[in-house]
Design a protein around this nucleic acid. Structure first.
Length: 487
DNA sequence: GCAATTCGGCGGTCTACCAT
DNA sequence: ATGGTAGACCGCCGAATTGC
């Protein structure tokens, strides 16, 4: 047993020294530990890597806190508990280091504040405002191997084994050795944005995401019974920082499904379900696609067979979506509603100035909100939708309102969102992404971003073609798709 | 033994990010 | 409006503890 463990440990050590001999931590640009060390030399061998790591942890934890105000001083005032046992397990000499940082040398002030609430609770720490400076953060690379090993051991993302197996086709591409990430530029851009908006809490949260990515911290979450989407470091990554990511030295790009949720709605409507035999055919087609929530699907089909949407409407609806004209179709009607001015200002924090792209975005968000919301909201928009697609409106409304399983009365409308999200993620993950992987024998790295596939720039065109083919084959028509390069 | 208090779990809210 | 991640906070409810 002991022997086995030692061999395994050896391999593991080799593995991590090859690709993980560095670790990035986040500290204020202003923090000058070296100066303090030279002015007040410690009487023991002090590791500045550990001090920096500890301060970085305080910053990371601060980013998770929430408060009413989001300015610099409100975002940095928190005392963060750090248990001495854990500190010690990461770095043996942690106590000496923390005492040094806490010590008030010659009235110059402490580098750390420390607070002890009560017995049996651990100390908590806070980096004084002075050391945050103007709030700008920088990434520093630390190199002490034992420390890094311990950090990684302590702070490893927990990935459910089922999730790992089910999504290994994309999880394996999350390899920090193949990513190239200009984190410095990304941080700088985030800081410029903070200067404009004054929202420090947001800057802090995004800076921590940048640090985690830089360190190859890649967690994965998947809940098949709700949205069924795969949430990754990419789905959480700040949009403005995407252009600083490269993979195998190449730019990244995405193929995006236009109005993907309405597309899947039109798909599920378009399969005939009026006769008992047709229901079972539809059943067979769709059950294979929602293996985790067959019951929602059955329930939906029952409602649909009772209400019977008009096939004329379904064709028109599907055509609007395939031509990517759905949101434009509703935008003028939405603009003429009583609630437009208030609604627009709530969404954009400014009045409407006649820009058609803004209007289209507004229309898109209102329409989707309406689809997902409890039928008692968005009444004006529902009326507009009803005027154009009365029977589709009735199916949706009926489905949202009927009693189902253990959904509370106030939550019954959510099953539409669940069903559509699950259909979308099933197609993207289990059909499209898997097939690309199989067809190209794992030579095309891919990442899913809900309704997007993210790829290397050079793979973009052939994947686009293949996606189109798959849609035509699986459901006889394809949604409008757009290609975008992350620049 | 009963009433009053306290505590923990649960569910809801909020903030931030991403997507539709 | 919906979904996911994170943590804090609040109110509710029942169980456990405390007080008389």
């Amino acid at each position: 047993m002991h022997c086995k463990k030692a061999v395994y440990g050896h391999c593991y050590a080799l593995f991590i020294t090859l690709i993980m001999n560095q670790y990035y931590i986040l500290i204020p640009k202003n923090l000058n530990l070296e100066q303090r060390l030279s002015k007040f030399p410690p009487d023991f061998k002090l590791s500045s890597d550990y001090c920096h790591y500890f301060i970085s942890e305080l910053i990371k934890e601060s980013s998770y806190q929430n408060q009413k105000k989001n300015d610099l001083s409100s975002s940095t005032k928190f005392f963060i508990p750090r248990c001495s046992q854990i500190n010690q397990s990461i770095y043996n000499d942690s106590k000496k280091h923390l005492d040094y940082l806490y010590k008030d040398f010659g009235g110059e002030g402490r580098m750390l504040f420390r607070k002890n609430y009560e017995e049996s609770k651990c100390f908590s720490y806070n980096l004084p405002e002075y050391y945050w400076g103007d709030g700008e953060l920088k990434l520093v690379c630390i190199t002490e191997e034992d420390l890094i090993d311990n950090i990684r051991k302590y702070d490893k993302p927990q990935i459910d084994n089922i999730v790992r197996k089910r999504f290994n086709f994309t999880i394996n591409y999350f390899d920090i050795g193949r990513f190239e990430f200009d984190a410095e530029s990304a941080l700088n851009e985030l800081y410029q944005k903070y200067k404009q908006t004054g929202n420090y809490a947001k800057y802090l949260k995004n800076a921590v995401r940048v640090m985690k990515f830089k360190n190859g911290y890649f967690p994965f979450w998947h809940k098949p019974k709700t949205d069924g989407r795969l949430h990754t470091a990419i789905t959480q990554f700040p949009k403005t920082c995407r252009k600083y990511l490269k993979y195998d030295g190449e730019r990244l790009a995405e193929v995006d499904l236009s109005s993907s949720i309405p597309f899947f709605l039109s798909y599920i409507l378009s399969i005939p379900a009026y006769t008992p035999t047709a229901i079972s055919a539809k059943d067979a087609v769709l059950c294979a696609q929602l293996p985790y929530s067959e019951d929602i699907l059955h329930h939906y089909m029952l409602v649909e067979s009772l209400v019977r949407p008009s096939s004329r409407e379904i064709t028109d609806f599907a055509e609007l979506i395939q031509n990517n004209r759905l949101y434009e179709f509703f935008m003028i009607d939405f603009m003429n509603l009583d609630n437009f001015d208030v609604g627009f200002e709530n969404m954009f924090q400014r009045p409407f100035d006649g820009d058609m792209d803004d209007l289209k975005t507004y229309s898109k968000r209102r329409l989707l909100s309406m689809f997902f919301a409890n039928a008692k909201y968005y009444e004006q928009e529902q009326l507009v939708f009803y005027r154009h697609f009365p029977s589709i409106h009735d199916v949706i409304k009926k489905f949202k309102q009927t009693k189902f399983r253990d959904f509370k009365k106030s939550k019954r409308h959510k099953k539409l969102a669940f069903m559509l999200f699950q259909l979308e993620s099933h197609f993207m993950l289990n059909i499209i992404a898997r097939e690309i992987n199989n067809k190209f024998k794992r030579k095309i790295p891919l990442f899913t971003l809900h309704d997007c596939l993210v790829l290397k720039e050079s793979d973009l065109d052939q994947v686009y073609e293949l996606m189109h083919e798959i849609f035509i084959r699986e459901i006889e028509y394809a949604p409008n798709m757009t290609k975008k390069i992350w620049i």
